[in-house]
Design a protein around this nucleic acid. Structure first.
Lengths: 190, 190
DNA sequence: ATTTAAAGTGACAAGTTTGTCACTTTTGTT
DNA sequence: AACAAAAGTGACAAACTTGTCACTTTAAAT
């Protein structure tokens, strides 16, 4: 009954991500996106009413994938393994953080956008609870300093993804250094 | 010879900062700025040719002030005091980092913009050298772990300003927690 | 009081982005 | 072969942003 699609949703989401990282939320336009997809601008309106709806839909999509991957944390039984998994996870998903901060800019024009933003908030909450649970376990097992507020620890770990990494240092060395700093800090023990 | 100014440069820079943090680089317009200043849009063109020039000029200005404050690090003789000063400094200037990343987006349309960006880059470099010197000193005095790359340590410290701080935790507690994490990490010693 | 020049205004043209709509293309179903 | 319906196109009007320019306002200098 229908004609074959020229626009693949996957491709659309991929280019959306690209453009958001390059131009930021306010610099993102349907014109740019259409050009990248090799399609008329008006075609995109067949799928999304406006850029807010498109971007939030993309984000929900991305969040779902990320969340599924994060759930793999439960294949590891011990705290130490889970903590290591978590750090790797966060460090190798370093655009996630940028996307979250872009998400906060989006105004809630339409009901659909509002719904998407709610779903995003839920994901964020579940993710946060998941991680807080790990922090609590670490404290119970006497591995994490009990006096540091959970929120600060989590915020701190999340923020680490944005530490720039320069050429001249390999990705692996970078990850290992960041891990050590998070766990034991930059100072020598004396 | 001249009429009294309606636009104060200080006010203009303050509103520029506000708007940049709210709307991002691409969402910043002369129209918005003029509205906030209670002035005709065209008046701003008497001072700046376009938004790139305005924004980079503001940034150079801000950078100069910040740099002067940072120089106060030299009133402290010991490494420990300087390191503490540095962390306080960075943590209490937490929008600095956001502004720097906005700065990177700005295209170099005009020669003046190019010049401003060069000056910004110089400030950045001097600041970086200043801090790297401190890190090196820390390593020489056996206080900082020698195997961590300087760049990663610096990037890490700079990044810390962006750790969100939630209501429910006082600013002082937040600063103290971040300081401890940077220095000694989140893990207990065993 | 007159002049001068910086400060600010309002209107215009050019360019971009947005949303919509009638129209064409394509493909599976009858 | 005819049709139904989803997919895509191009053109249009409305809105906004940008840069410019002739013009007015204001305050200090002569």
């Amino acid at each position: 009954m229908a004609r074959e699609r020229k626009i693949s949703l996957n491709e659309l989401f991929a280019q959306t991500k690209q453009l958001l990282l390059e131009h930021g939320y306010e610099g993102f336009t349907f014109g740019l996106l259409a050009e990248r997809l090799g399609v008329a601008r008006s075609a995109i309106y067949k799928y999304f009413e406006n850029k807010e709806e498109l971007i939030t839909t993309y984000m929900v999509n991305e969040m779902e994938e990320v969340f599924i991957k994060l759930e793999h944390i439960h294949v590891y039984p011990t705290f130490d393994e889970q903590f290591r998994f978590l750090l790797d996870f966060i460090l190798y998903h370093n655009d996630l953080h940028e996307m979250i901060s872009i998400g906060k800019r989006i105004p809630e024009n339409h009901p659909k956008v509002q719904e998407n933003k709610q779903r995003l908030a839920q994901f964020h909450k579940r993710m946060y609870e998941e991680l807080e649970h790990l922090i609590k376990r670490g404290k119970q097992e006497g591995k994490i300093k009990p006096h540091l507020p959970n929120q600060v620890i989590l915020g701190y770990i999340f923020q680490s993804v944005s530490v720039p990494h320069f050429p001249g240092i390999s990705l692996a060395e970078w990850v290992e250094s960041i891990r050590e700093i998070i766990m034991y800090g930059v100072m020598n023990r004396n």
